[in-house]
């Protein structure tokens, strides 16, 4: 990220009303498209609280998204916003970040968006370690198109395209990010909003590619077909099932399916530094220009 001067809070705001006034677009964008009980609004709240906490200037933030429920988020927020094609948010974001490294680029994606159609861009963004923060809102199904199974749908779940139960193995988003080279990887849920704000903040501050996965309920598309009684019950269940991850030599992180009783780890799974793409390119340009000025030594 690009740190504001002296850590100054340029858009100082604190109450919900002040956050609303500062960060949401007012020009008849509401009511929003999300269903009652949807978790995406909570992620939106955490996202703008993180940006406010860091004190980023609104002009210096680009929120980019793909297609799906979560990808409608940029339309509501008063930043530079780019709502792209299905799965390609990171590819658009890469061009924008690379072309203007001073921008803080945040990509908001769903599970199908980021990991199925956008899986290639996801792993290559991790590998490239370009300074973008990817917020993957995982609601375990394709909500906008009517509740079809996605790459993170648990085995056995009932979906509109898995009416007899999903037989596929799900992806673990964080495993994929870790294996592909992302330098900050964390998981939270919409129940754990304090942690969520913290992880997004750390993700934005990490000068490299960051993945923050957020488990979120989709009652309409997923929950009501799979024994959830209410949307709020789904959020409460996330609170019960989440197991805080403590990194010790003996306690290696386990993928969600391997904890007993539907439990899963939340926490920071990686926070380290390595060469970032835009920086490496700037070094390359600098070196090439120097070599051109001193052709003999090159």
């Amino acid at each position: 990220m690009t740190e504001p001067a002296d850590g100054e809070k340029i858009n100082a705001a604190s109450t919900a009303d002040e956050l609303y006034d500062c960060y949401l677009r007012k020009t008849s964008k509401f009511p929003h498209v999300w269903c009652s009980g949807c978790g995406i609004g909570i992620v939106l709240g955490s996202l703008i609280r993180s940006i406010e906490h860091i004190g980023l200037k609104k002009d210096d933030v680009l929120v980019v998204s793909g297609i799906g429920c979560s990808s409608r988020l940029p339309g509501y927020v008063d930043f530079n916003t780019l709502h792209t094609t299905h799965g390609r948010a990171l590819a658009f974001g890469t061009g924008a970040k690379f072309g203007r490294p001073a921008l803080n680029v945040i990509a908001v994606m769903g599970d199908g968006d980021a990991l199925a159609i956008g899986g290639n861009h996801f792993i290559h963004s991790c590998r490239r370690n370009i300074d973008i923060t990817a917020v993957v809102i995982n609601n375990f199904n394709y909500g906008m198109t009517g509740g079809q199974n996605s790459p993170t749908t648990p085995e056995g779940s009932i979906l509109t395209t898995a009416p007899y139960g999903n037989i596929e193995n799900p992806f673990d988003t964080c495993d994929l990010a870790l294996g592909s080279g992302a330098t900050f990887v964390a998981r939270s849920t919409v129940y754990h909003v304090a942690e969520l704000k913290e992880y997004i903040t750390l993700g934005i501050r990490n000068p490299g590619f960051s993945v923050v996965e957020v488990y979120a309920p989709c009652y309409t598309g997923y929950g009501r077909r799979n024994e959830a009684k209410t949307p709020t019950g789904m959020i409460a269940q996330l609170g019960k099932d989440a197991v805080p991850f403590k990194k010790t030599l003996l306690n290696r992180r386990k993928p969600p399916g391997s904890l007993e009783g539907g439990k899963f780890h939340i926490g920071i799974f990686r926070d380290e530094r390595k060469n970032e793409f835009c920086n490496s390119y700037a070094e390359l340009v600098k070196k090439r220009k120097k070599d051109m000025e001193n052709p003999i030594s090159s």
Partner: peptide, 25 residues
Amino acid sequence: EIGGYFIQMEDELASLAACIGASLV
């Protein structure tokens, strides 16, 4: 050499997507 930007993307969809993102900045 001219301080411009070259990137080899992961496929052609990404190539044009990156170009559009860069055009907008």
